[in-house]
């Protein structure tokens, strides 16, 4: 007998992946100069390719699409985890200030260290996520500290302290980037608002280990995330080590977010929107909702990046801004829905 929930999951999985391929196709073929599908395939499969096509696809378009996809996937999953363990559908790594914390730490890193080791830029790119992680953990610790009341996290306090910490770190980041050289400042500003336009293979390599390590940890705990939807007494009664599991899951998602921030800046709202869309599509079981949330995240970032680079072409918008245009109303809509 086929489990109907599983059937629905497989169907949605298939459809969303199909959408991703369609978006990849569109992004690969269209741009400042259009390629035909034959040219794309010839280049990808290394059949009589031309150096120009190689450059367009391998140096510009492909790494950018892949990075957008990976970042979206990771942010979607991190969002689902954060919402799951806080039992709060309005939680999102961006709103909670994890992005801002990671971003501030990375700007500190850029400001003080990157120039000294700029001849080994490759290493700098690999170290960047680590700095992001430290910033992310600092932000998370602060949020926990402020929203902790009587042995538990209060949802309202969590959101409020997250917003406060987010603007605090944001201000610090702007302050530091203002002290940079004019060219670096411009770079930093684009990066802060969230962009993948300077994507390259090094970036992809630098976040890949994080995703490869942390996503399986999270997937294996999907069942626990289901249990986390019960209240704390029931959880403890079932023999769940609540604090331990909560920390593992939270740290894993902070790790994912920090890796993403280090390569693409602060892309907000993906972690908020994707889990909601995923749960609408496949129900509340995390074993199904987690992967779909990741895929929806990837689809959102790839699509938004395509819009960002083509709508005012040749001028590019940071992808984070395009996502915010959709994300802000969505957040408000959720707020109203929660109130009811």
């Amino acid at each position: 007998m086929i489990n109907p929930e599983r059937f629905r999951y497989v169907r949605i999985l298939f459809i969303t992946i199909l959408f991703i391929f369609i978006m990849i196709y569109i992004s690969l073929t269209s741009g400042t100069f259009d390629l035909t599908i034959r040219e794309v395939f010839n280049t990808l499969l290394r059949l009589n390719s031309s150096p120009e096509h190689d450059a367009v696809i391998f140096d510009f378009r492909l790494p950018r699409i892949l990075l957008a996809g990976l970042v979206g996937f990771a942010l979607g999953i991190a969002g689902a985890v954060v919402q799951g363990i806080t039992r709060n559908g309005l939680a999102d790594p961006g709103i909670l200030g994890i992005n801002a914390g990671a971003g501030a730490a990375i700007v500190v890193f850029m400001f003080f260290f990157q120039y000294q080791i700029s001849d080994t830029g490759w290493q700098a790119i690999m170290i960047q996520p680590l700095f992001g992680l430290i910033g992310g953990i600092v932000a998370t610790t602060l949020i926990y500290f402020f929203s902790w009341k009587a042995g538990r996290i209060e949802p309202q306090r969590l959101l409020l302290s997250g917003i406060a910490i987010s603007s605090g770190f944001g201000a610090f980041t702007v302050f530091l980037s203002l002290k940079m050289k004019a060219t670096d400042f411009e770079m930093a500003t684009v990066w802060i608002s969230g962009s993948v336009y300077n994507a390259n293979w090094h970036y992809i390599l630098s976040i890949f280990p994080w995703l490869f390590l942390l996503i399986p940890i999270i997937f294996r705990k999907a069942y626990l995330l289901d249990l986390f939807q019960l209240e704390e007494t029931s959880l403890k009664n079932l023999g769940v080590s609540v604090e331990k599991e909560q920390s593992i899951l939270l740290l894993s998602s902070v790790g994912l977010v920090s890796a993403c921030v280090s390569v693409s800046g602060s892309i907000g709202f993906i972690g908020l929107m994707s889990p909601h869309i995923a749960k609408q599509l496949v129900g509340i079981k995390h074993r199904y909702a987690l992967p779909i949330s990741g895929i929806i995240g990837a689809l959102l970032v790839i699509t938004s990046d395509y819009i960002a680079k083509s709508i005012f072409s040749p001028i590019e918008l940071p992808v984070g801004i395009v996502i915010s245009i959709v994300g802000v109303p969505y957040f408000l809509y959720l707020l109203i829905k929660v109130k009811k």
Partner: peptide, 23 residues
């Protein structure tokens, strides 16, 4: 005793247990 092991010997039903309504 590890908490998971206790859960095999002792179950507690709290006063107002909460679960997602779609479950």
């Amino acid at each position: 005793i590890p908490t998971k092991k206790i859960a095999k010997h002792l179950a507690l039903l709290p006063q107002n247990p909460i679960a997602p309504s779609e479950l």
